[in-house]
Design a protein around this nucleic acid. Structure first.
Lengths: 202, 202
DNA sequence: CTACATTTGTGAAGAATTTCACAAGCAGCC
DNA sequence: GGCTGCTTGTGAAATTCTTCACAAATGTAG
C-alpha cells in the first residue's frame, strides 16, 4: 500500500507540532483520503490506536516505520553515474530515511575513478563483488535501457533483494525480487492524458 | 490509465521490428497484463483492430499517441535548477516525446544567468511572465518542499494546465489542474515494504 | 458510578476493476 | 461459397477496493 508512506509523511508534520495523538480524520485531511480508509489501512496491520482518542503519534510513527521497513538501514549500490544517478546520489532525504548509498558504479572509463564526495566511482564489472563484499540490499538502476537487463540479471544472481529501476524497460526478474519502476516520460504522458480529456480525477 | 503508456512503449519495439500487426496476446506479454485486459482497455476508447488479425501497429501507435496527447508539442517550464532539475533537463526522451523545455527558472542568484546548453536560467520571479509570454502548458516543479506551494499557486493563477511535482508535498490545486507526483523516497519505501513482508506481488 | 462525547475497528453494502467465456468478424484455402 | 483457424469486442461472473454505518472501547465530567 502506497498510502502508508503518505501517512508517515503526514505524521512527521504532526510530530514536530507537539501533538500527542491524531485522529483518523486529521490524518485523512492531510494524506488524500477518507477517515474510514485510514482506519481500514491501519487495522490491516494490527490494532493500535485507542478508541475515543485516536492514534498516539510517536507510537504510530514507529509502527509505520516497522511496517515499511524504514526502521533499519538499507545498503544501496547505484549503478549508472549519469545525470539521474548524480541527482539521486545527492538527494538528501535518501540517507535521512536509512538508504545508504555505499557504492557507485559505471561502465564509462572516463568516469571510473572519479570521486563524488568521498565515494569513488568503480567499474560496473565489479558489481557482483561489491554486492557480496558490501552486503548490498538494493540496486538503483540508472543506466541506459539497453544495459538494464544485463545489470539486473547479474545483480539478481549476486543475491540482491530489490531493484529501483529508472530505465524505461520492463525488467525480467524472478518473482522473489521486487522491482519498482520510475518512468518520467510515463508521468508526463499521464499528465497530458488528463489534460486532453477533461479528466479532473486525481 | 497508466497502462496505455506501457502499450505505446511496447508497440514502438514492435514497430522497429517491421511487424504489421500485433495481437492482444503479444501486447500483454510485453506490458504486464493479460490479453483480456489489453482488449478492454483499448475497446474503451473505440474499436480499432481487426478480428482474426490483431491491431495494426502503426495505426494503434497513432491512436494511442492521440489518446495520451503525445501527438502535439507541450511547452514546459522547469522551476528549480538543482540536481533533479538538471537531470530532467538533459533527459533525452523528454524532447523526443514532444515535451519542450523552453525555460528554466531558479531563485538562487548564483544560478540565475548561467546557461544550460543555450537556455539561460532566469529568476523564478519571472514565472508568470514566462508562462504567459512563452505560452507554457506544463510546469515541472523541482524546488524544495517549502517553496513548492507558492510556486504552484502562482503558476495556477498564470493559467498553467498541469504540474509534474517532484517536491515531497501534497500540492493544493483547483480541480481542473492535474498534478502528477514523483516521490523517490516513496518508491524506496514501497520496495523495502515488499521485501520485509514476503510480498512478491508486482 | 453513570451519562456523555469521542473515535476506533469492522462487518456489510456498494463501486470499481479484472477475469472469464464466447459470439461475431475476418482472412485464407479448397 | 463454405469450411477452418484466429482474434477481437463485450456481457456476465468474480474479485478487489472503497465507503457506510454502527457497536465496542475509552477518557471526562458531574
Amino acid at each position: 500500500m502506497r498510502r502508508l508512506s503518505h501517512y508517515l509523511r503526514a505524521l512527521e508534520g504532526f510530530d514536530r507540532n507537539g501533538g500527542g495523538t491524531v485522529s483518523s480524520e486529521e490524518l485523512a485531511s492531510k494524506g488524500h483520503t477518507t477517515a474510514a480508509q485510514v482506519r481500514k489501512d491501519l487495522s490491516h496491520f494490527g490494532s493500535f490506536g485507542k478508541r475515543g482518542l485516536g492514534y498516539g503519534v510517536s507510537e504510530l510513527v514507529d509502527r509505520l516505520r516497522a511496517i515499511l521497513g524504514v526502521d533499519r538501514a538499507w545498503r544501496v549500490v547505484l549503478v549508472g553515474a549519469g545525470r539521474i544517478g548524480s541527482a539521486l546520489f545527492e538527494y538528501p532525504d535518501f540517507k535521512a530515511r536509512g538508504y545508504d548509498c555505499v557504492a557507485v558504479l559505471d561502465s564509462d572509463p572516463h568516469k571510473i575513478g572519479a570521486k563524488w564526495g568521498n565515494t569513488t566511482i568503480r567499474d560496473t564489472a565489479e558489481l557482483e563483488a561489491v554486492v557480496v563484499r558490501e552486503q548490498i540490499d538494493l540496486v538503483v538502476l540508472a543506466v541506459p535501457a539497453v544495459a538494464a537487463q544485463e545489470v539486473t540479471d547479474r545483480a539478481v544472481r549476486a543475491g540482491i533483494k530489490g531493484i529501483l529501476n529508472f530505465a524505461p524497460v520492463r525488467l525480467k526478474v524472478p518473482a522473489q525480487v521486487p522491482v519498482e519502476d520510475v518512468n518520467l516520460v510515463m508521468e508526463l504522458e499521464a499528465l497530458s492524458f488528463r489534460i486532453t480529456r477533461g479528466g479532473a480525477s486525481e
